[in-house]
Write a protein that binds this DNA or RNA. Structure first.
Lengths: 311, 311
DNA sequence: TCATATTATGAGTTTTACTCATGTTGATGT
DNA sequence: ACATCAACATGAGTAAAACTCATAATATGA
């Protein structure tokens, strides 16, 4: 059997290709596992496997010895991992040094619900990266328009960036979407008791927590799942902000319909459960909104880039 | 006017993106010119421009100050370039160290014509990269088959890799194409005298140098350019190998039809000229051919990778 | 020996990097 | 001043790399 291979096209020198794999290789070397490395990097196991393979081909060396489950660095791999660490450290330090030179003030306006957990996490990471930027956080109203234009219910002169939800149409402002709004059905485990939940109808007897400033949510959700007209209408519990709905749900007060962004962490650590997967993409997105002038300021641009990156 | 931007998808951390641009940035910083950096890297000016731009966006910094023609590093750029050099040096050294650990013998068989200049250049670069590999070079016959299967006119047991021309069909062997065969019309400047060459017909009065082991070359070329039947048939000069044809052409003995691979350098430094652009892709390619067992040897695989890379 | 946890791999998709062609701009010489 | 030149910038389209998803293959250990 003859086997033929075609020629490659010209690219940058081999060093460049090696450089970009270094973080992947380093993670794999540190964990001694492609799976865990992938988890750390937020990519799939297959991606790590492939990249390491191609690195080994580039170098013409075997970097890991694989025996089924067990992964171990070879002699060459060990050498590379040590040097790689040094090089990575160098570049990381450099990055921090450069970012440290960005200073200024960042005035953020945010929907109250974002400010409880999600935004705090972002701000934590951001201020670590940019220690010389001061942040000033205030809330803005959650008023919501279903129309074609999104409202500007904050004072653009007192805020550089507003974090809000909408359709991306703020005249005279420049907006960046960082997350699609997807509503998720959640509740506390205790609410379900020992009932077996098989269909959406099984859930409709449970108390629902209502978001009073966006009243249509349940109805839109029900429509998307072809369930209109099923809601019981006895006692109702309603709250102005999502964060209050969330707090109520955590207490087991009822079934909540909340944006995924706000409940990701609770789902991950099982504070809340998703009794049935009945999600609903609303068509809105979360946006950073600011004037063109604001976006030109380094501190503001840095925040935008950070958020887009970390999403 | 409102301006909206969509969210990015998750990728590797920012450091990884920075790493792969470093060689580009370094070249630009060293040359103080995107154009010259591009030339060094073998890519276009636009590619360099874009990558530097995206690096600047990633970092949220301006690295170069552009004033029309003049390009200069900013303060931040200078800082980055110094650190980048250190990091690059580290990785390059590392690469050499790893490659230095590959040792063994590489037995190459080659068409004689390749061994004059082109292959020597490759071997020079290869042995610099892999100082621990010994190379043993011999020639193999240039016999050529126009049929479906390519001949094996060398002893596979005495050679790891044969460099030859063909169609990629060597039964029981594994082959890698590294260059398409493209015939170019060349001659010494003096041959043209002061005649004005406007069409192919103008050239047909000049003496042609003939490659006796692949007699059809001129005819195939003529056919491709719809010129059959024009050749004068007085005195003829014919040579067994391309390298002899090339040597004759350099002396101004006649018009030669040679593979681009063999005359690239002569064209670049004007030892030879291409009186009219009348190239002809023959459909053959240059191949590295070896047994699967040979390709498994590190020294042999290293040579393959080097050649595919440098093409 | 079966369940499990891991890496490998085929197929298809998305994103990035590149080329080519053209636009723009500032310096230079007449 | 103005034309010219030599750089960088940029829009559009293409090629290649990187990633995902789904699934296969494989060693480990109860």
């Amino acid at each position: 059997m003859s086997k033929t291979h075609n020629m490659t096209r010209h690219r940058l020198s081999i060093t460049s290709q090696i450089l970009s794999v270094l973080p992947v290789f380093d993670a794999a070397a540190r964990h001694g596992s492609f799976t865990r490395a992938a988890r750390e990097l937020g990519i799939t196991q297959g991606a790590v496997s492939r990249r390491i393979q191609s690195l080994e081909e580039q170098l013409g060396l075997v970097l890991f010895s694989r025996q089924g489950k067990t992964l171990a660095l070879t002699q060459d791999g060990l050498l590379l991992s040590q040097k790689a660490k040094t090089a990575l450290k160098l570049v990381e330090d450099l990055e921090h040094e450069l970012k440290g030179s960005v200073s200024g003030q960042l005035r953020l306006g945010t929907l109250p619900s974002l400010a409880n957990r999600w935004l705090m996490e972002q701000i934590k990471g951001f201020t670590q990266d940019f220690p010389a930027i001061s942040v000033d956080l205030i809330t803005i109203p959650a008023d919501f328009s279903a129309g074609h234009k999104d409202p500007v219910n904050w004072d653009p002169s007192s805020v550089d960036v507003a974090l809000t939800v909408g359709r991306g149409s703020w005249p005279a402002l420049e907006s960046y979407a960082f997350c699609e709004e997807e509503m998720v059905l959640v509740c506390h485990q205790s609410l379900l008791g020992d009932a077996t939940i098989g269909t959406l109808e099984d859930l409709l007897g449970l108390p629902r927590l209502i978001h009073s400033t966006r009243l249509g949510s349940w109805e839109y959700w029900a429509e998307a799942h072809r369930l209109s007209g099923y809601f019981s209408s006895d006692r109702s519990l309603s709250f102005e902000h999502f964060f209050m709905v969330l707090a109520a749900a955590r207490q087991g007060l009822g079934l909540a319909l909340l944006p995924l962004l706000l409940v990701e962490q609770d789902l991950a650590n099982s504070t809340l459960v998703e009794p049935l997967k009945a999600r609903h993409v609303t068509g809105n997105s979360y946006y950073m909104v600011g004037s063109a002038a604001a976006w030109r300021r380094p501190a503001v641009a840095a925040f935008r880039d950070y958020l887009l990156q970390s999403t």
